[in-house]
Design a protein around this nucleic acid. Structure first.
Lengths: 332, 332
DNA sequence: CTGAAAGCGCTTACAG
DNA sequence: CTGAAAGCGCTTACAG
């Protein structure tokens, strides 16, 4: 059996009869032979890996159910194609930008997934200038020529506000995440619009996603006059932190104040009262983004025109509001 | 400048004067040149990457603050050495075993980290037979010749039981994780011993770590007679789920029943009442394990004798019990 | 220190 | 289909 034929068989190269191909694959399977990835990468000029660098400190990642789900979805998609996922956790976007440059210079990855896009984000121009294939996850909308997947932010905000308004709430505040994140701004915009449309009022307080900041923001909101009758939190852990503050202030939830979370999780189910939250399929979302990245890489390699993903970005899994015990008619 | 000299400079190979080395490094930095990883891997017979395969479904990983911290610690250690972390999420140990075989056959990784060791674990013999460098994280104790890092399980169980006993509790039950995990069994052993030493009684109910199972187990424990005066949970999310069940049953925490968690997190701080929990430095733990793996890889590459890590396994960061509002003197 | 050369294990045309 | 060969971009001795 020639080395060339084996290579053809494994790479699905035409010019080999089907029976021969099958025989080769069977033998490879039997003896457990696998092509050396480094050699293959070197001659094929493909790393066979994609990169994901997370620019958030571990203590914030630790309580965010979004990332494990996202990674799981990405991973599920990549592994069917034998593409590895390279993970790096860094402290800030600058470190991430350095990591992206290094990955690409070393040809460690064929493409990358960008998360937590900033309003002004250094990664976007770098990636575009390098020609490093990239997709944006949780983006705000069109950013240069990079494909993006916005994550239903506006729609989820609208669903929650509409739900609260239908319960008679007219004074709805929000404890938001980092203002520097593009998706936070997108949510803020949608929040304002939804309130205005309903004739309701309310403001958003930005935090750094820590529970301390969420607790402090909640205290501040409770002291306002008139006080809000409902508070929306950008994620589940901040909502739970807020819930604790509200209860300690002697306000009953949901009788005296309604609480809702823009991110659903098991946590929302198990706290008392359980939390009304916006639920969506993050794993499917991650898989879709990974699929787009793979396509981008393939097209870049084939020197073919890259489709305008921005125009076709599909978002899987419509978000659905899960109404639980923490929201009720507004007190009068 | 010869190609050979550049290579020597970058790899710290002696036989190059210091000024020349510095000049080469400066130029490489300036033009942003980085050696192609695939080529380097091929000639050096080193992938420059380590693998971590997680055999837990994403919905369980999503609420476990342990893994992001562990990964962050591993990553911090590896990235200082320019070693990449390859991540794969799989459904079960069999799929993980397959992933390990593939990674090694393709020389995608130089070594792997094994987590959630089972009482009978197929990965251990496979890894040993392949000669794939591996360290065990959260292991039960010596397993063949693989270095292991047990994660303070016994000590943490003891601290919690001793705390409850000192508060007068004599009937202490436990809602445990998967019985198939070696660390669950290690905890169960330590739990029994600690109770016996204190003249207290109690049993452990195993669950699959889901909040549903934790809730069901808690209900069962409350119906017992005599009912426990304290319940210990194997992790924070199960503790919160249990707390909800207890409160709905009309039992006050901590006045009627004390609750404690064997895993600390922000969650424990923010729920009401806040939860007493065993806290330890998981990131440092991950870093230590990664360091051991790197050492193992280096020694394996040098054909030198591999140290007996099992004898020297250091565990960083002594665990500390954080007493919060959920534990109080036993009711009489 | 330089320069030429072999080799890592594949992929990919190319002549038979 | 086979077999010989070049090339991917490094590392690593080796002679000058």
């Amino acid at each position: 059996m020639s080395k060339g034929s084996v290579s053809y068989a494994l790479n699905g190269n035409p010019g080999l009869s089907e029976p021969t191909r099958q025989r080769i694959l069977a033998i490879a399977e039997e003896v457990g032979w696998r092509p050396n990835r480094a050699a293959r990468a070197l001659s094929a000029a493909r790393a066979g890996a994609c990169g994901l660098a997370l620019a958030r400190p571990a203590h914030l990642l630790a309580y965010d159910p979004f990332f494990p789900k996202l990674i799981s979805g990405i991973e599920a998609e990549l592994s069917t194609r034998q593409i590895a996922l390279m993970l790096q956790m860094v402290d800030d976007v600058e470190a991430e930008t350095r990591a992206l440059r290094r990955w690409w210079a070393e040809r460690r990855v064929d493409g990358v997934i960008l998360v937590d896009l900033r309003v002004v984000d250094p990664r976007v121009p770098v990636v575009e200038q390098l020609g490093l294939p990239a997709v944006i996850v949780g983006g705000p909308g069109p950013t240069g020529k990079l494909p993006y997947f916005p994550g239903h932010d506006a729609q989820r905000v609208r669903q929650i506000v509409d739900h609260l308004v239908s319960l008679g709430h007219r004074r709805i505040d929000r404890v938001a995440g980092l203002a520097a994140f593009a998706h936070t701004q997108g949510r803020t915009r949608a929040f304002r619009e939804a309130l205005a449309r309903a004739g309701a009022t309310g403001t958003a307080l930005s935090t750094d996603y820590t529970t301390q900041a969420a607790a402090a923001a909640t205290k501040k909101l409770l002291e306002r006059s008139p006080a809000p009758t409902a508070i929306v939190y950008d994620n589940d852990i901040m909502a739970v932190a807020g819930l604790g503050v509200v209860q300690e202030a002697g306000v009953a939830v949901p009788e005296g104040l309604s609480i809702a979370s823009l991110e659903d999780s098991t946590l929302c189910e198990v706290v008392r009262p359980s939390l009304t939250a916006s639920s969506w399929d993050v794993e499917a979302f991650g898989a879709t983004a990974a699929r787009a990245l793979v396509k981008l890489i393939d097209e870049a390699a084939g020197h073919r025109r890259v489709d305008d993903f921005a125009a076709v970005a599909t978002e899987p899994g419509e978000p659905a509001l899960v109404v639980r015990a923490s929201t009720a008619p507004a007190p009068h």
